[in-house]
Simulated assay, not measured.
Amino acid sequence: MVVDFSTQNTLLLAILVLFIGKLINRKVPFFRDYDIPEPVTGGLFVSIIFGLLHMQDIELVFDTNLRNSLLLAFFTSVGLSARLGTLIQGGRALIVFLGLLIVALLFQNAIGVTLASLLGLDPVVGLISGSISLSGGHGTAIAWAPQLSETFGINNAMELGGVCATFGLILGGFTGGPLAERLIRKQNLISHSKEHITIGSRYDEEHESIDAENTLIALLVVVCAMTGGSKATQWLTGYGLFIPEFVGCLFAGILITNLLPILWPRSQWDGSTPSLALISDVALGLFLAMSLMSMKLWLLATMAGPLLILLAAQTLMMLIFVYFIVYRFMGRDFDAAVMSSGFVGIGLGATPNAMANMTAVTQHYGASPKAFVVVPLAGAFFIDIVNSVVIRLFINLIS
Rank of each mutant, 00 (worst) to 15 (best):
N156E: 01
A141T: 05
I217T: 14
S129C: 14
I279Q: 09
L259C: 14
A277K: 03
I199P: 03
K194L: 09
I217V: 15
N155H: 14
L80N: 06
Q56F: 13
G43H: 07
G162K: 04
A354M: 12
T237V: 12
S280G: 06
T233Q: 09
L60R: 02
V28R: 04
K27F: 03
I254A: 05
Y239V: 10
K194Y: 05
G99W: 09
P39M: 06
Q147G: 09
D122S: 00
L219K: 07
A350R: 07
S117D: 06
L52A: 01
P274M: 06
L134C: 00
I49M: 07
I325C: 14
S201F: 12
S388M: 11
L219T: 11
D122L: 00
V223E: 09
S77H: 06
I58W: 00
V374E: 06
N155I: 15
N357H: 03
L255H: 01
V125N: 03
G345V: 10
L72F: 10
P123S: 02
L134T: 02
H364W: 03
G347Q: 01
A301P: 07
T359S: 06
A337Q: 03
R67V: 04
G136N: 10
D57K: 10
G248A: 10
V389D: 01
A289V: 12
L278S: 15
V17K: 06
L316I: 11
V3N: 08
V3A: 08
P37V: 05
V386F: 13
L18S: 01
V2E: 10
A371Q: 03
L297N: 00
